[in-house]
Amino acid sequence: MGEEVKEVKILEKPWVEKYRPERLDDIVGQDHIVKRLKHYARTGSMPHLLFAGPPGTGKTTSALALARELFGENWRHNFLELNASDERGINVIREKVKEFARTKPIGSAGFKIIFLDEADALTQDAQQALRRTMEMFSNNVRFILSCNYSSKIIEPIQSRCAIFRFRPLRDEDVAMRLRHIAEREGLELTEEGLHALLYVAEGDMRRAINVLQAAAALDTKITDENVFTVASRARPEDVRQMMLLALEGNFLKARDKLREILLKQGLSGEDVIIQMHKEVFNLPIAEPRKVALADKIGEYNFRLVEGANEMIQLEALLAQFTIMGK
């Protein structure tokens, strides 16, 4: 709502919500996808969809906008949002789907939409069950599955979906949106501030807007300093510190750090290993070592997926770091 309204609302939504595009046309940087989604909206029919791509590139926004354009004012009634990592297992998801599919769509639409975020968080078995559920209710429900990597979705599901690959946003697209928000909010967006925002965002619109709002909460002048202050909170150095401890040969301390990240902060093993991979090339070690460690990370990423206990696999990886550091 709110974009056209100048007055300050009594309740200000967080900016990522306030400035989330409502219409497909307002989505930036994914023209080829938007074009097809608009076609679905016009014809009032669509297959199951699979949205794959990095965070903050418009997957959820596209699903919400598509629902609005398909269903009009009834969209909330015909749209169910689920999160695979949050619902307790495939059975809970199935029950919710069943419950939602029980009632017929409101308005002229011939179907309802279920948006399943983090579909790649489901195990292979759960995905098989999901596939059966998708078929069981395909009479009046379309699924939009969202994930970071389509390769983690099983073949039978992929083959039943139209697959859309969302690209990381270009800096120009993010910058345009940030300037627009800054103007609306009466901020002074300095050139350095904007560059800092683009640097920390890495093509992730949500991160860019979140950091912008937090920096604006410090001062209406958006400086690179404030941006980096906020961003360092967003992406703490824990994983890097853990790797450095291991490289110094301090396995026990590194292990404690890992356990803190996993248990207290709630990151999954996979989150940690992805961050390790991003960070390994910035470590203060000889170049060939970085490659060797990246190889180890890859091996243990594989074992993490194969294994039962994430913590054991990551601890084993840290132990590998302790010998590579010497």
Binding site: S146, R206, N210, R233, A234, R235, Q265
Partner: peptide, 24 residues
């Protein structure tokens, strides 16, 4: 995750950014 349509990892990041707003 629910109010802002996010995946868990995104929500973790967002929560950290909110923390700096809540403190300041």
């Amino acid at each position: 995750m629910k109010e802002m349509h996010m995946a868990k990892l995104e929500a973790i990041e967002t929560m950290r950014i909110f923390r700096s707003i809540f403190e300041g």
